[in-house]
């Protein structure tokens, strides 16, 4: 089973919930950080890394000798990564999306395959937990191809829990689309409600069961609760606001370990997630 933890905006507690959930998970589990722009799960799980590979994308390399400046490559490239100017062929490797179009259309064989570094894929162990993550190179704009390289190492013999990037754009969709269950982490505030709504709308077409973790409850307003009730989004867990949670998080600790009274809530969450995946979610409070 693949579980993706997502949120319409950052800072709702997605990584906090993810770290605790993998820690209490009672079956073999792989924790995967797909928030490759800001991968933070390792800061909490503190894995011992044992492997690393550089993720690369295929880009064209030109041979000016063979090039006749016919312009076929320039014409097919939608990203302006390859351009003929006068008699000269110019490439802009950082703009390439790796579609391979230019190589396929070049009639002279003047283009060959090169590579651009996107970032790195890292893996290791945090106790019994298998750990896997991607980290985008600073200044690199394209995360989906790096995420594809991370996903190639998903272990189907284990349950997989993914920390997805926040938001509802392309990288977020990419991270959750192969999941069996999507868990949206939000908070009962106007921002939380608005971003939950965006996330639900973005992920609904994927057609996977979704549930909500309502974090830092006890403050804010009812907007997010009303929305869950109206749209039939089950609330799988509520985590009441507690200053100690913020403090433990700031010290790099996993809440389920550092605050034993919260441990039971995450065990409960694990059970709810399994029910949701199996399509037999028991009655939940829904606020």
């Amino acid at each position: 089973m693949i579980i993706a933890l997502a949120s319409g905006k950052g800072g709702t507690g997605k990584t906090t919930v993810c770290a605790s959930l993998v820690r209490i998970w009672d079956k073999p589990v792989q924790a995967v950080d797909l928030d490759v722009e800001e991968p933070n799960l390792a800061l909490y799980l503190k894995p011992e890394l044992s492997g690393r590979l550089i993720s690369e994308m295929e880009i064209p390399v030109s041979d000016q000798e063979k090039c006749t400046a016919c312009g076929a490559c320039s014409e097919i490239c939608q990203f302006k990564a390859i351009t003929v100017l006068g008699e000269y062929l110019l490439t802009f490797p950082e703009m390439c999306h790796g579609c391979g179009g230019c190589l396929a259309v070049c009639p002279e064989g003047a283009l060959s395959l090169g590579a651009r570094e996107l970032g790195e894929v890292l893996w290791g162990q945090a106790g019994e937990i298998d750990f896997l993550m991607g980290r985008l190179r600073v200044g690199e704009a394209m995360s989906p191809p790096l995420m594809r390289d991370v996903k190639k190492r998903l272990d189907s013999s284990r349950d997989v829990i993914i920390d997805a990037p926040p938001g509802t754009s392309c990288p977020a969709i990419n991270a959750v689309k192969d999941a069996d269950v999507i868990v949206l982490v939000t908070e009962p505030t106007p921002f939380g409600f608005y971003d939950l709504k965006l996330a639900r709308e973005a992920f609904t077409p994927i057609g996977k069961p979704m549930g909500v973790v309502m974090n830092r409850t006890g403050f804010g307003d009812a907007g997010a609760y009303d929305y869950c009730r109206a749209t039939g989004l089950p609330i799988l867990l509520e985590i009441p606001y507690d200053r100690r949670v913020a403090e433990k998080y700031s010290q790099g600790e996993v809440i389920a370990d550092a605050l034993p009274e919260f441990r039971g809530r995450f065990i409960e969450l694990a059970a709810r997630i399994r029910e949701l995946a199996a399509g037999d979610l028991k009655e939940v409070s829904n606020g």
């Binding site: 097919i76 939608q78 990203f79 999306h97 579609c99 391979g100 179009g101 396929a104 259309v105 392309c170 969709i173 689309k177 077409p205």
Partner: peptide, 13 residues
Amino acid sequence: LLACEGCKVCVHF
């Protein structure tokens, strides 16, 4: 359409 990057390769070929 979620996966399509708009590269035009399929259109061309």
